[in-house]
Design a protein around this nucleic acid. Structure first.
Lengths: 342, 342
DNA sequence: TTGTAAGCGTTATCAC
DNA sequence: GTGATAACGCTTACAA
């Protein structure tokens, strides 16, 4: 059962007018009899007329719809970004069509194709962990199609990107641990093919160096899944195997940090007195665990808003990506809680 | 800069054919010269032809797009549901357009209008906390427009709904607390205008009665915001004011449960030996807090999948809501962890 | 001030 | 086997 939508033609027929007059009346064109205008609007109201956005899209070759492609919806940080995207798009009269890739490259590609078929005006992308080749993006960029990358951004020419200052955040977190007197700081690192992981790792190392500590490769431990179970297991093992006994953990995400915390508790180590822990992202649960978890806040909502602003400005030709290369970097903020302060 | 999309006309021009022939060739219609077909497909490939979904929508009055309206994206449960919706829709060739209402009725209404303008084929809705009048829904239902409600469902005639067994989940949780020997069980209740809140409250009361305990209105405490801060404050106060000292909390959501846990710790009460706590939803952090939090698991992903199945079956006329009234109730599962087992 | 006609991309219908 | 035409709903030169 379809919804019987009244069209301009219906209004025209009822009032013995032409479709063009109705169209003009509805849009307050100059040079329309005000009585006609009144009648048209009244009839539109009566018939519950609603413009057909599909017809408008076809006419204007503009859909007022943007696409969003993310790895996962069920992810606190990404959901925050989506929220920002949705707010900004809504307030500027755009629709958002959303797909998740589940970290699969093939879904990423097919999503882009579907969206292009649907004539989206532009797209926001955070790519999957499987993506190592960026040709499907550069093709679009080369054709001048509006595309903005956020958080997970490719290192390709002319890409417009929005990220947080991962390096700076990691630097600050590590520095903080040093200041609290921790010396043997382990880094639980993310998947190395993501730039964000590398930035965080480098920020950590830079902070150590600046503090006169030489980074030890053995202290950089991969936790590519980023789950608390993984980190717990990894850290439990570490506590036995490492020569230099670690007295702090800087994790690339909050779940790993919690995993580390659980492993320490299990091993009978006091947090923060014996071991300091700092996470990254400042997820909701940071203030709910015991001890509460210090973490680097990433402005997800702002990232969504900023990315969308850039994209829509581009679409609406308010800025020209050819002339103004933009990579926007949002500042992070270290939130210190119990887990790292002694 | 628009993407120069090749159209059927372009292919036709290149090959000196008519648009209709090209269209037929591309769709493998019978009665087309196989050589022509080959040439057309080759040219389509060469020009990187992609069918214009907008034109198809206009032609067929079908957009292959469904709308999703939820209160908040940044909400673990809802994001899980979205994930299920997205998966099912994607696998059946539909797009998902998403809006969040931020719990505002006015946004709910305007979102529906925008989506209708965009000729969505159907819509999935979980309504806002502000929504108390359901006329904007019944209007659509009366016109036979495909609409499926999930989680927060209105009690109006002919509404197709998908919920979890909130009553049953609450019943089981409360029963479990009783079995663990807790007697003065407080319920931290959700906003009463949501049916889910009432169901959970009633499940709690029914379980008490079945255990020979008369529910005490003073032991049902509103926590309408559902934040841990709110619950912590409420519970701290409770511990002093209630005549019958509470020895357990069944919260309508997990954040309230954590708030209660924090308040108890603060008051020097041991969990679970002195106070038992059970939450609702089984959010990620349940296994991360200390002690780990027992909670009622709600199948969010399945809810998304089920709702979408119903909606798409309706759209594709695989079931007739006039004949088969469907309210689908998914089972919950109590996950017992440390906070309630002694 | 209003009407006519063409066109956005596609396909169903009817010709040839 | 293939082509011409009309139609989906709307806007916009151009004409009246």
């Amino acid at each position: 059962m379809k919804l019987e939508q009244a069209t301009i033609k219906d209004i025209a027929r009822e009032l013995n007018l032409s479709a063009s007059t109705v169209s003009r009346a509805l849009k307050n064109y100059p040079g329309i009899n005000s009585e006609t205008k009144r009648k048209v609007k009244a009839m539109a109201e009566k018939l519950n007329y609603r413009p057909n956005a599909i017809a408008l899209s076809l006419r204007h070759s503009r859909s007022f719809t943007i696409g969003v492609i993310i790895p996962e919806v069920v992810h606190f940080f990404f959901s925050t970004v989506i929220s920002g995207i949705e707010e900004e798009a809504f307030s500027r009269g755009y629709n958002v069509i959303l797909t998740q890739t589940n970290e699969k490259l093939i879904r990423e590609k097919s999503s882009i194709n579907t969206m292009l078929s649907n004539q989206i005006d532009g797209v926001l992308i955070s790519y999957s962990k499987e993506t190592t080749d960026f040709e499907h993006f550069s093709n679009l960029i080369d054709k001048g199609f509006p595309i903005v990358f956020f958080d997970r951004v490719p290192e390709i020419p002319k890409a417009i990107t929005v990220t947080v200052d991962d390096f700076g955040g990691a630097f600050e977190a590590t520095k903080h641990l040093v200041e609290q007197g921790y010396r043997n700081i382990v880094h639980l690192a993310g998947p190395p093919n993501l730039k964000i992981s590398r930035e965080r790792s480098e920020g950590y190392q830079a902070a150590l160096r600046e503090s006169g500590i030489t980074p030890d490769p053995a202290m950089i431990v991969p936790c590519p899944l980023g789950t608390n179970a993984e980190a717990q297991q990894v850290v439990s093992k570490l506590l036995h195997t490492l020569k230099k006994k670690p007295d702090a953990f800087f994790a690339h995400n909050d779940m790993s940090a919690v995993g580390a915390m659980m492993a320490c508790k299990e091993a009978g180590l006091q947090v923060p007195s014996e071991v300091g822990i700092v996470g990254f992202s400042n997820w909701q649960f940071c203030s709910m665990v015991d001890p509460t978890l210090s973490s680097v806040y990433q402005p997800g909502f702002e990232m969504g808003v900023k990315s969308t602003q850039l994209l829509l400005d581009w679409i609406e030709k308010k800025f020209d990506p050819e002339k103004s290369e933009i990579s926007s970097v949002l500042v992070t903020e270290l939130i210190t809680r119990q887990s790292s302060v002694r």
